[in-house]
Design a protein around this nucleic acid. Structure first.
Length: 407
DNA sequence: TCTGGGGTCCTAGGACCC
DNA sequence: TCTGGGGTCCTAGGACCC
């Protein structure tokens, strides 16, 4: 590791806790309260209020009643009868997210967004300009608040994983700084399921082993862990329990898949209807691929049955594609290959994976077929008139329980 | 309580190649 | 004659995250 004083002796030493995790507080709900100030201070849930809806984001007033994200909306309503449901407005969230990213980029170019409302920052190179990392965290929070009227919580720590835990501890509207010599004191009392990668299943397994806290996890023999959780997960957990994480903050990562899926309001068992939905999803995926400049080698069809059993079928093509006609054709073949007929289907999804950049070299192949050109024309119409202005005629023939009701 | 929609990563078996 | 071992790709399922 090279730590060099600058030629003039002016380059600051990299601080021991250079990583920030910035996490917006109740992001979607907070953006909604900005759009409609009458929502401020009230219990608000962003998400679908229909029978199969779930809460995507809950204001702190709603959380006081026990409402949480990922909770079925029906249950949230029971917990908090005065809960106000708002349909998600991703254009608004994306706009706010972009604004926030610009603020963060004014402190360091090393910003890694995790989602619309979270990002890691490596401020190791910014101390000379902006002060020590905790000071930068204060400035970032203040700048976000000034620029967007939204509050953020920030964790300051030696690495990404600790910074993320620290921002959790800082919520809402605060800062937590985990100094390099305070890692054990911070980590030991935390419940194991606070760790990244410990979800419901792993938590159960750990509880059966008698492991409730990170301290207990750190004291557990690697052999026992490996037997219970497998090679990779146990090693992963072991390093986290020690507070170690050497992942760098990576400003840009190429996407690996593009997908769209939809849960029907009522289960569907009509093949024609299923295939129309596959076509609709194929168009959305293809349009995204083209807009982002990728083509997919593998097409995956996802089906969730009424009993929540989930099946996937995929096929890898000789040539990558960004054409809805291709996605739909493969999707239909995959559907036809399933070992059942007329089962009750709750959800359909279409995904393109194995993405390759749609480089200039591939443009030649394009001109061979007519479909891609027709679809590009649809993209242009969508650009001018909004998404969904143009869509294939087949989608107009609605079945009785069509999920794609249009005005 | 009855489970959204967008993703990433891991596992495990089988095909295929050398 | 009935059987190696490593590497890579493909497929299906599942855990997990926000």
């Amino acid at each position: 590791m090279r730590r060099r004083r600058g030629m003039m002796g002016s380059v600051a030493t990299r601080p021991p806790e250079p990583i920030l995790h910035v996490d917006m507080d109740a992001f979607y709900a907070s953006v909604e309260a900005l759009k409609d100030p009458s929502l401020a201070g009230k219990p608000v849930a962003v998400g679908g209020s229909a029978a199969r809806g779930v809460v995507m984001s809950a204001s702190y007033e709603a959380r006081r009643h026990g409402v949480r994200s990922a909770m079925p909306s029906v249950r949230a309503r029971r917990l908090c009868p005065e809960l106000i449901f708002v349909h998600p407005d991703f254009d608004a969230y994306r706009a706010a997210s972009n604004q926030i990213r610009q603020v963060m980029l004014s402190f360091t170019p090393v910003v890694e967004p995790l989602s619309l409302d979270e990002a890691f920052l490596d401020v190791g190179g910014a101390v000379r300009l902006f002060g020590e990392p905790p000071e930068i965290a204060r400035k970032v929070r203040a700048a976000i608040l000034e620029g967007t009227s939204l509050t953020a919580s920030v964790g300051v720590a030696p690495n990404k994983f600790l910074a993320k835990l620290a921002s959790d501890a800082a919520k809402p509207d605060g800062i937590v700084h985990v100094p390099a010599d305070g890692v054990r004191a911070f980590l030991d009392p935390l419940p194991v399921n606070a760790l990244w990668g410990v979800g419901e299943r792993t938590h159960e397994v750990l509880l059966r082993l008698g492991v409730r806290t990170v301290a207990e996890l750190a004291a557990t023999s690697p052999v026992v862990l490996e037997r219970a959780l497998g090679d990779q997960s146990s090693r992963h957990l072991g390093t986290l329990a020690r507070g170690e994480d050497d992942r760098a903050v990576v400003p840009y990562d190429a996407p690996k898949s593009v997908s769209h899926e939809e849960t029907f309001e009522r289960d569907v068992d009509d093949d024609d209807e299923v295939l129309r939905e596959v076509l609709r999803l194929s168009h959305r995926v293809a349009a995204r691929l083209r807009a982002d400049g990728y083509r997919a080698r593998t097409v995956t069809l996802k089906i969730r049955l009424s009993n929540f059993t989930t099946l996937t079928r995929s096929r890898t093509l000789p040539d990558a594609t960004d054409s809805a006609a291709d996605l739909h054709r493969v999707g239909a073949e995959l559907y036809a290959s399933l070992p059942f007929a007329r089962r009750r289907i709750r959800l359909l999804g279409v995904a393109g994976t194995g993405l390759v950049p749609a480089g200039a070299a591939q443009l030649a192949r394009y001109r061979a077929g007519r479909w891609p050109d027709a679809e590009r024309a649809l993209d242009r119409i969508d650009e001018r008139f909004g998404r969904g202005s143009a869509f294939p005629a087949a989608l107009l023939r609605r079945g009785p329980a069509g999920p794609f009701s249009r005005p």
